[in-house]
């Protein structure tokens, strides 16, 4: 048969590939993020933590990677928006009754919703921490990130917003991690169970460590 050459990136599978690729990139960023956060557990009044935060805010390589990170987020979001639109138009007339609960997990069907919640959380999160850091760098001042942590997480409202945001992250990761591997075609009867359980534990651990931070700060365990 003759060989048609559709554009890979505009094909449905190509778009999913980009979603998975950017998704995994963001997932890898979370590891860095969580490691830096974990510095508060030295419980040294944020000394180590601030050092790490300072490094992240000022190092040139990190600065460049940061641009990539934002591009990744934007690509992930834009691509998702396109896919959701297409997917919605693939079924213009909806079912009167649809019972999907028996055949799939709710969070696998709610990636768009979870993603939107995550985006909203991200905006709050950036406003809380990233913007003040940037302002400080811009002004050439020293910014005590740890102190601002304590201030921000003293509010129970913020704490709840963060916990909800992290819950969204957990479910988003729970599906997204193994889904990305399937999209890349990386399945194997020997290794897939490993990838799946790795994805599960990754989601659990990352979320728990992230969540522990506002909680411990709020409760005053970390000072």
């Amino acid at each position: 048969m003759s060989n048609a050459s559709p554009n890979f990136l505009t094909s449905s599978i190509g778009k999913k590939f980009l979603m998975g690729f950017t998704g995994l990139f963001l997932i890898s960023f979370l590891v860095v993020h969580v490691c830096i956060n974990a510095c508060i557990y030295f419980n040294d009044s944020g000394e180590t933590f601030n050092m790490a935060a300072h490094f992240m805010a000022n190092n040139i390589i990190v600065r460049i990677v940061e641009i990539g990170l934002f591009l990744g987020i934007i690509l992930h979001i834009v691509q998702a928006a396109i896919l959701i639109r297409q997917n919605n138009s693939a079924r213009p007339e909806k079912y009167a009754v649809q019972n999907l609960a028996v055949s799939s997990k709710w969070y696998s069907r709610s990636m768009g919703l979870l993603g939107t919640l995550l985006l909203m959380f991200l905006i709050v999160h950036l406003a809380n921490f990233w913007v003040p850091t940037k302002v400080a760098v811009f002004k050439g001042e020293e910014h005590n990130t740890f102190e601002s942590l304590k201030v921000v997480f003293s509010s129970p409202l913020i704490l709840i917003v963060y916990l909800l945001g992290l819950a969204s992250l957990f479910y988003h990761l729970l599906h997204g991690f193994q889904s990305a591997f399937r999209t890349f075609g990386l399945t194997h009867k020997k290794y897939t169970p490993f990838i799946k359980s790795f994805g599960f534990w990754y989601s659990v651990i990352i979320t728990l460590v992230f969540a522990s931070m506002p909680i411990t700060l709020y409760l005053g365990i970390i000072k």
Partner: peptide
């Protein structure tokens, strides 16, 4: 793709 099917979200349904 040309037929207008949606894409795969790997929900497994």
């Amino acid at each position: 793709d040309a037929e207008g099917f949606g894409s795969c979200t790997n929900t497994g349904a």
